[in-house]
């Protein structure tokens, strides 16, 4: 559909612009302001230039060491959950029932974890994994596995990854299901006549049709796992030691725990820049895929 050039459309966008600018630009400017200053308490601030940034980007300093450690941890975590959730989500979407009440039932159960407050998700897994009162921890220990997510870093990681898979795989599955639903039955009939194998149907029909939604799923999951805070915080509090301290947890510790405003602000800016770059790549790819596929899919 060809869009008309009309500058008056700005009037329709203006309210959103003002409201979001209020919640985004003013706070961001505050952060920038903090990031170039140092304070010795008493609300007295001193110009510090790019000092904090230098520290932050140099892994040999205390601040830089903490930043890079939590950054790598967070990237590893994001990679792990993406590697599990994307294939599993596709598999679940392909397994969805064809029609009838069972579809509605499955959709509702799938959506359920997505609507649980994040701290409650943490609470659920905190309880579920405990070896004394939780079903999972108790069962694992019953089989002789020495599972304890409070003391053992590996167990803590596995618990948090399992929790994230539990929490978010549904999102991928629902997105893929929506993509699959938009494939006309005629495609399958044609494939059947051609004698295409199931694998061929998947790679030649279903996967290309899911490309767009998979892209949304991939980037939403990357972003959200990259800024995860509440769930691991409730389950492990970032421990044992620092083994599950991700970027957001480190940042909140710095800002609201130690009140190291300058360091926290510099970290915020760099953190935000990383997100912005990934987001830009996402947006560019998205809009290109959009112009490629739109005419062919025709709406819905």
């Amino acid at each position: 559909m060809e869009k008309i050039v009309n500058q008056k459309a700005w009037l329709l966008v203006l309210p959103v612009f003002v409201l979001v600018a209020f919640s985004a630009i003013i706070p961001l400017m505050t952060v920038v302001n903090y990031s170039v200053q140092d304070t010795f308490g008493n609300n007295q601030f001193f110009w510090n230039g790019v000092g904090w940034y230098k520290d932050l980007l140099d892994p040999s300093t205390e601040l830089g060491g903490r930043f890079f450690a939590s950054l790598w941890r967070n990237l590893l975590f994001s990679a792990a959950v993406l590697a599990i959730e994307i294939p599993l989500g596709i598999l679940v979407a392909l397994s969805m029932p064809r029609e009838g009440w069972r579809v509605a039932a499955c959709l509702i159960i799938l959506a359920l974890p997505l609507l649980i407050p994040w701290n409650v998700v943490g609470t659920i897994w905190q309880i579920f994994g405990r070896s004394d009162i939780g079903l999972l921890g108790y069962t694992l220990n019953l089989f002789g596995l020495n599972y304890n997510y409070v003391a053992n870093p590996l167990d803590a990681w596995l618990t948090i990854i399992a929790m994230d898979v539990w929490h978010w795989t549904s999102l991928v599955a629902l997105l893929c299901y929506a993509g699959l639903k938009s494939i006309p039955e005629a495609y399958y009939q044609a494939a059947h006549i051609d004698g295409a194998s199931r694998w061929a149907v998947f790679t030649a029909i279903q996967l290309p049709k899911m490309k767009r939604v998979l892209l949304i799923a991939f980037l939403l999951r990357f972003m959200d796992s990259f800024m995860i805070y509440t769930e691991p915080f409730v389950v492990t509090g970032g421990g044992p030691g620092n083994s599950t301290t991700f970027l957001s947890i480190e940042l909140v510790k710095l800002a609201l725990g130690q009140f190291d405003l300058g360091k926290a602000a510099a970290m915020s800016i760099v953190y935000n820049l990383i997100v912005l770059i990934v987001c830009w790549v996402f947006y560019t790819v998205m809009t290109n895929v959009g112009t490629e596929r739109r005419p062919e899919t025709g709406g819905v």
């Binding site: 972003m223 800024m227 805070y229 957001s248 609201l256 953190y271 935000n272 997100v275 990934v278």
Partner: peptide
Amino acid sequence: SNRMAPPAVFALP
């Protein structure tokens, strides 16, 4: 990009 911004960044400001 605001949808993607980490809330932890905005908590203090």
